[in-house]
Write a protein that binds this DNA or RNA. Sequence first.
DNA 1: GGCTTCATATGATGATCATCATGTAAGGCG
DNA 2: CGCCTTACATGATGATCATCATATGAAGCC
Lengths: 204, 204
Amino acid sequence: MRYSSDQKLQTRNRVLKAAAAQIRTHGPQGVGVAALMQEVGLTHGGFYAHFASKDALIAAAVKTMFEDAATQRHRAIEDRSGPAALGAFIDSYLTADHRDRPDRGCPVACLLGQSAQLPALARPAFDTGVRGMVRLMASYLPDATRDPMALASSLVAELAGALALSRAVEDEALSLRLLEQSRLALRARAGLAIPNPESPYHDH
Amino acid sequence: MRYSSDQKLQTRNRVLKAAAAQIRTHGPQGVGVAALMQEVGLTHGGFYAHFASKDALIAAAVKTMFEDAATQRHRAIEDRSGPAALGAFIDSYLTADHRDRPDRGCPVACLLGQSAQLPALARPAFDTGVRGMVRLMASYLPDATRDPMALASSLVAELAGALALSRAVEDEALSLRLLEQSRLALRARAGLAIPNPESPYHDH
DNA sequence: GGCTTCATATGATGATCATCATGTAAGGCG
DNA sequence: CGCCTTACATGATGATCATCATATGAAGCC
């Protein structure tokens, strides 16, 4: 081992982190190898010492996105459990902050509409991530829930859908309304009490 | 007027229709001017006689998508009204068929995740389309609904989210489960009776 | 019947991009 | 001390792409 003992690994991780951010903001197509390497402080040449192809990079980056997402979920939930944890997760998910920072946000919401341009290599990681998110939500639903996995599946669809929609929409008021009303609806569906009415929107 | 009287208009419409399909399947970036024109039976040169730029094409194509979507909604709803219309719409929306034909499907679900690569010119049309979809669903909710626009907003998020998710996922069983469980949840939330149990999925 | 107009074709231009062959320098090892 | 592995750089290649300048050819008009 020349250079410092794990030089290459650290570089690889920095490239991965940058790619994970770029993919979430600009989509898989929006990332160029040269621009990516430059962001890490290197030139494009060395890229193929770390990844076999751009598709391989994307697949690896998708994986790391979901790993990061898991730790972020823990941070949002803190030491809560059960429905309280679910409520905290929903509240942290459907915020303008999360909407405005896709680069460090939920990969499910970011890759939702990129199915066409996501290379086949990255698909399994996405599936696993979706399944993990559904399972997580199911595990926090009230014990009395009849079919937790069924409900969780529906909740995940609305969560990711609302966030992605709020990003796609241009009008700020419409965007905030989409976030807030799905937040309320999701809390109600999860059997949670009416939350702090932190954003009083009225239609029309 | 040389050629037949409205030759140019018809060509323009054919280009638009092809673009609307391609954008929905491959995303805005996935459409090339040359390939698009070839699909219409022309060469790339004439393109700029019809559109000022690729972005202008995309903006126009997004508009036509939403126009088509409106007529398709009428077809799905037929002569039903009120909750029955809503149920028919939900059932027609969350099907494997709709999932597998994005090229003629709902633009909201297709463009959900393309916010980054959608040119600014096309954004207003998208907003209008989303608003229209929310309004439509609100108008069909039961009269007793407390805040129809609020509920409709949440329903649209889940509808589009579930469809987009079902497309992004690789595993067919997972995909079908996402569709079906959101279909059931949405019907219930819209105050509709338990529907025909056309697809009995069990988790695990 | 020739002129003119307009829809489309041909071909070029420059930009961007993934990929790779080869060069270089850093630094542990003999 | 010098060698040689290794991480990265330089530069080239060929592909793809949007855009546009110019050519062509059909068809209505005088």
